[in-house]
Amino acid sequence: MRYLFALLAMLVSLGSIAADNQRPQFTFTAIPDQNEAELVRRFQQVADYLSAELDVDVNYMPVKSYPAAITAFRNNQVQLAWFGGLSGVQARRAVPGSEAIAQGYEDQFFKTYFIAHASAGLQPAEALTDTLRGKTFTFGSKGSTSGRLMPEFHLREAFGKAPGEIFSRVGFSGDHSRTIALVQSGAYQVGAVNYAVWEKAVDNGEVNPDQVSVIWTTPPYADYQWTVRGDIDRQLGAGFKQRLTRALLQLENDSILQAFPRSRFVPADNSVYRAIEETATAIGLLDEF
């Protein structure tokens, strides 16, 4: 019993020390679009970089799903987030006043690859053809731009039908790394994947070209961006948003940029994503009704 009380006293004092340590914190998150270990490696470097540039404590908060990233942003658990095109639109609708401040150079003309397992017998083509009918197909996350929105849009354009009616089985793998793994293993015959994640996997030797290959590429669209809450200056001091934007645009650290992979960051604003918003509305993902 005595030991228990000692333990209790210790924990209470630890709790109060932790409470004293409350300084304004700057936290950011990112949509979990691929392997978590890779994300932690990438965003820990970003946190260190921003911490040095902005002279505040910067934390990266890993999350489990796309809506989790949006919810954390909406509830002010994070003030900045690396969103995809669609999740960014959703987040900015949920938090009035928030803004897209920077995107990767490559995000101005992003692409989705359709990849197929060798056993499906599909050849690379200029357009989506009837050979896809009856195959099994996996998207990435339900809320992904490159893994769900754009591939679904183009499938509906080409076939005039919902994906569930084109394919014999439709799944949501959860993220792009998993899509590659599932199609490579043959669990799904065809999948839609973010081209940047795919090319990085190819460079790292994680893709076996005998088993899985690209069969179609979507037209380009705008994707990932850094989005910041509108009230960030009030929380972290006047001019913070400006300094943050500058820090992101001036990021030249090769190791961080390669981890994304992006060649550099360029300015962005909310209007860049209007086309994404319209596409999402067109296939019924965004409208309230």
Binding site: M1, F5, L7, L8, L11, V12, L14, G15
Partner: peptide
């Protein structure tokens, strides 16, 4: 002991 500890810590 544990329950108060949990709520305080």
């Amino acid at each position: 002991v544990l329950v108060p500890t949990a709520f305080i810590a």
